[in-house]
Design a protein around this nucleic acid. Structure first.
Lengths: 215, 215
DNA sequence: TAGATTGTTAATCGATTAACAATC
DNA sequence: TAGATTGTTAATCGATTAACAATC
């Protein structure tokens, strides 16, 4: 158990937590009140010891031997750890296909992520709005970031433009960059970066597939 | 070096290869003819020993001490390893925002991935076509998979529908499922699965951000 | 030649899995 | 009580990093 202490929790564990949360919420919806590591592990196809250790890191109370965790309490703890109730504002740059899809995705609100504005350089997109999010000119981006204290930027521009958009963002004060363009971005020290590399995902899936079909 | 031998290459290495390839291609475009592990490592912010080991696994020839690898040859080897020149056909289910964006993304062709048909249950989408890919009724999906020997399915439906779509796909013969819906899917033995879990990515980025801003 | 880079073997690091006493 | 599950400590596993002789 932890008491708001920032014990170091591995990246691997952090990545699993959203899946645990979805699992817990689905159990709760089924009317289940109490949950064990084994139940979660089985639902997700994971090792139960791993789940047990992960949950111990984020739960505010010890699980009870034999019965496990009070599901509602655990949900609160995981959500709290992930910061889903502390809204964070992000901007998105590149309102093309993928950008528009992300703006339109209502699920981000569940994760405490609010896209408050989008930017594009295409005049025919500027002025439109998707899902209540208006598309502004990229030229307005630095001022917007500064005025609204935006800490996170989502990049969905073509690869050629990604690094320069990234530079402008981070210069203006963005401290976390979520990059969907297929390029490796360089960010200054002190800025968090996450590359959503579809090609990397696909490579792993393809290799798994060829192992399955060729052996 | 390897000679079409299926030495076991770790998932971690496979995931890095697409980034190496992009890097190599960018060097080549700059007119560079020969490349060392150090150059790639620096460009991508990785450890050079790691890059050296990774490249050794996929290169068909040994690198030459002092000069490194012939860039063109290495590109061919990496592409070959990743199967980018062996076209693989996939179908996509769920032609909403994200689905439409993926259909419209022309970059997949670079990775040897061709989305040959899309399916949806929404009558107002059926019959349309994006980017030359026509949207058919989900009911036609099993027959399409069987008739065209489709091995890969991309799921971009709302989470409630994902598992049933997945079941139908795999029953019809799909052997690799690329899931973008925010649910954990269960697939039969012998089917490869890759969950594109945006919440997991965001969780890691958010935690990195909060470490940066709160310490 | 001298020195940078290679492939490979060894050491380190971190994450996963196993073992086990405590407990509800 | 008996037995399943907990938290925690130890063992294993795999991936990353270091070390080094070979070589262009």
């Amino acid at each position: 158990m932890n008491e708001e202490r920032e014990v170091k929790i591995s990246k691997a564990t952090i990545q699993r937590l959203p899946a645990y949360l979805r699992c817990l919420q689905s159990f709760r919806q089924q009317g289940i009140r109490t949950v064990t590591s084994t139940m979660v592990a089985e639902a997700l196809g994971l090792n139960s010891i791993q789940v047990r250790k992960d949950l111990a890191l984020v739960s505010s109370v010890s699980g009870r031997p034999k019965t496990g965790f009070a599901i509602q309490e655990l949900i609160v703890d995981v959500r709290n750890f992930l910061g889903y109730d502390r809204a964070s504002e992000a901007i998105l740059v590149g309102a093309g296909g993928l950008g528009a899809a992300l703006i339109g995705y209502t699920g981000f609100a569940d994760y405490g992520l609010h896209i408050v504005a989008a930017f594009d350089s295409n005049p025919s997109l500027i002025g439109r709005s998707y899902n209540g999010v208006s598309i502004l000119s990229v030229e307005e981006m630095p001022a917007f970031i500064q005025e609204n204290n935006i800490l996170m930027g989502i990049i969905t521009v073509p690869k050629g433009a990604a690094q320069s958009v990234c530079d402008i963002m981070t210069d203006a004060g963005v401290r976390a960059v979520w990059n969907f363009a297929p390029v490796h971005l360089a960010v200054p020290q002190g800025v968090a970066l996450r590359n959503e590399d579809m090609a990397a995902s696909l490579a792993v899936l393809s290799k798994d597939l060829s192992r399955l079909t060729q052996d």
